[in-house]
């Protein structure tokens, strides 16, 4: 089983409309109650939130379905509405960003991956990015606009910083769609002049409701989407504190999964 990281109440107006990802009384394991680095986690309102996975789903693949892959899937498909042949820019190739690269590539888009880490860009290329931009060496906006022949149709900020948010908006072509996925510590300045002049659409994306999982699960079960390809390390529960501390100082590349046995 898995569950969306946004656990819904199932009874509020948003839930009644099918938008459990923005539930008015949502809970999030690890933030509103204990979880998720544990062997057992309580999922409230299980009838609304639990998602059955096929027997053949590996724990490595299933580990990403609660947050990063599901979040990326909804951001690319439901919010970004990416169409085959469109250019999609992904700013920030961490866990969610790499999943967004893979989902967009599978959807038939041409993906430009942007990051400051060559290792992260290597992973993005493996997952289907057609163009990789090292934002530590070149201006990412200029690079994306040049690579896409005028700007991306869809751009996602999967990191969540003022710089990546602004770059994501500025690298769009006219009538492009910006999808904000990365959480921001405070509201960033957004180039609203460009939003007006280019008729850009600004969209938020926040997890994915449980009822939307079947399409994602089918792609994983068929081997079209392979969340485990982004995994670069497996650690035990005892190693979690050190790993979390290290993330703040020197973010690694790829995804680390935690197993109870290590």
């Amino acid at each position: 089983m898995t569950a969306p990281f946004v656990c819904a109440c199932g009874r509020c107006a948003a839930c009644a409309a099918g938008d459990q990802q923005v539930c008015e009384r949502q809970t999030q394991p690890g933030f509103t109650h204990w979880g998720s680095f544990a062997e057992y986690v309580t999922v409230e309102h299980a009838e609304v939130n639990l998602v059955r996975l096929p027997e053949e789903t590996t724990f490595a693949a299933g580990a990403g379905l609660g947050c990063r892959v599901a979040t990326a899937f909804r951001a690319v498909t439901a919010q970004g509405r990416v169409a085959p042949g469109e250019w999609v820019a992904v700013h920030g190739c961490g866990g969610v960003g790499l999943a967004a690269v893979a989902v967009a590539a599978v959807a038939g888009a041409r993906v430009v991956a942007v990051d400051v880490s060559p290792t992260a860009l290597d992973l993005a290329a493996e997952l289907g990015a057609a163009v990789c931009v090292d934002a530590s060496a070149v201006d990412p906006v200029t690079a994306v606009v040049e690579a896409t022949g005028g700007g991306a149709h869809v751009s996602l900020d999967t990191l969540g910083s003022p710089a990546t948010c602004a770059a994501s908006v500025r690298c769009l072509r006219r009538r492009g769609r910006h999808v904000q996925v990365g959480l921001l510590p405070s509201d960033p300045p957004v180039p609203m002049g460009r939003v007006v002049a280019y008729e850009l659409a600004l969209l938020g994306s926040h997890g994915m409701p449980a009822h939307a999982y079947p399409e994602l699960i089918a792609l994983v079960a068929a081997g079209v989407l392979r969340p485990e390809l982004a995994i670069t390390a497996t650690i035990g529960l005892d190693a979690v504190p050190a790993a979390l501390t290290a993330m703040g100082a020197a973010p690694g590349s790829g995804v680390t999964i935690i197993t109870p046995s290590g």
Partner: peptide
């Protein structure tokens, strides 16, 4: 609170989505 909602109650909702290539 209304009756409990089934998880798949919205699975057939008419929501635009991306068409993926045939899986096979």
């Amino acid at each position: 609170a209304p009756d409990a909602l089934a998880t798949d109650a919205f699975a057939t909702a008419d929501r635009p989505t991306v068409q993926f290539p045939a899986i096979q």
